[in-house]
Design a protein around this nucleic acid. Structure first.
Lengths: 205, 205
DNA sequence: CTGTTTCATAGACTATAGTCTGTATATTAA
DNA sequence: TTAATATACAGACTATAGTCTATGAAACAG
């Protein structure tokens, strides 16, 4: 197990990371659409072959970055107070998540993510990368049912989809309506009403 | 005012319409992404110059078609029974609209519409072409307030945005999750919960 | 150690959306 | 009527994402 000699795979990983970081830096300074693959390749002293060997598209770089969101979810779960009710938990999740998406990932990146979701055939990350989110929501709901906050009748998977749809809806609107759209407030106000509906519906059962 | 001689403008309109119809036919048979501008231009015996003189992009053709949705809204308004309550009206609007989008406009076109909403700088139709939808929702809400179904306290514009966001959310999910996503059922189930929340919230005020 | 295979990378090439320029004809001005 | 101008269109050209093929070096087999 020698450390000196770089193996082929190690070398490749370094190339990938180097392209990745160069691209992110360029995206940050010039904006996603202003950066060409040729420029990424040139600035990273690499090649098209290397680029497309490691990433399947220009978007793919952003998706890679987007996957870091799992770290966010981990941290969120770890620091969430245990004594909150269902509604409080969901709202606090949305609040934290939107802050993270807006400030840490940024609008450009999220636009790419949402664009790529609309590309046919592309394996959409909403069913992969958002798995962590689904798990969290799922656990919230399970807990709420156990605590009698939600009826045991509800379709858990469906509800997870609905709640995450609230997030996607607010995010999409943010991307469409732009800067003067207050993502935090909009998504909180929206989900609050939806959750009221969810809780009401259950009580009347 | 001679009828025989075609004026320049008339001729141009005919060219535009001819390109438009040729493109739509091609989109229908091969799917939007499979059709190139070159092919449209060639099949319509026209040229790039003519194409981009009349349309600002390939998407633009679809947006043109999408504007026909105003006819749908007109007809819907005309045939809506007057004796429905707020919730019934909104649900019936969503039901009819989703049927229309799914069956008459189709997934490909809607995908283009939602993609184009994500393109920066592009004047997004959500603030233009959806104006008719906003008007209808606005009138529903006004009526509901007058009838005491909704509190006079609520922010009407905000509520319009929320309800239309429910639609956008369901539509986006449809485009992402694909064929086995039941748009009608999903959007109805979703909005029903949201409306419950809206009505509840008001009652408790 | 030597021949063979695999694989990361280079960079030429392709496909296609969109731009630019030239032209002929309609329109307008005199 | 003739000259000047505007504009609809043709098609060459550009920009750029993504593909394909070649190559040289590492990994491996014997």
């Amino acid at each position: 197990m020698q450390k000196m000699k770089k193996t082929r795979k190690q070398q490749a990983q370094e190339t990938k990371k180097h392209i990745y970081l160069t691209a992110l830096k360029l995206f940050e300074t010039k904006g996603f659409d202003q950066v060409t693959v040729d420029e990424i390749v040139q600035k990273s002293k690499s090649s098209k072959g290397a680029f497309y060997g490691h990433f399947s598209s220009k978007y793919d770089i952003f998706l890679e970055k987007f996957k870091e969101i799992d770290h966010f979810y981990e941290e969120f779960t770890a620091t969430l107070p245990a004594n909150l009710c269902f509604k409080e938990k969901v709202i606090s999740l949305i609040d934290a998540q939107m802050k993270y998406l807006k400030d840490d990932l940024g609008m450009d990146l999220m636009r790419s993510v949402y664009k790529s979701g609309l590309i046919e055939n592309e394996e959409n990350f909403f069913s992969n990368s958002e798995r962590e989110l689904y798990k969290i929501l799922n656990s919230f709901i399970q807990k709420a049912i156990k605590d009698g906050e939600l009826s045991a009748q509800i379709n858990i998977q469906q509800t997870v989809i609905y709640i995450s749809r609230c997030m996607r809806g607010s995010l999409y609107d943010w991307l469409v309506f732009g800067k003067d759209f207050d993502l935090l407030q909009e998504s909180k106000g929206f989900i609050a009403i939806f959750l009221d509906g969810l809780l009401t519906k259950v009580k009347s059962n």
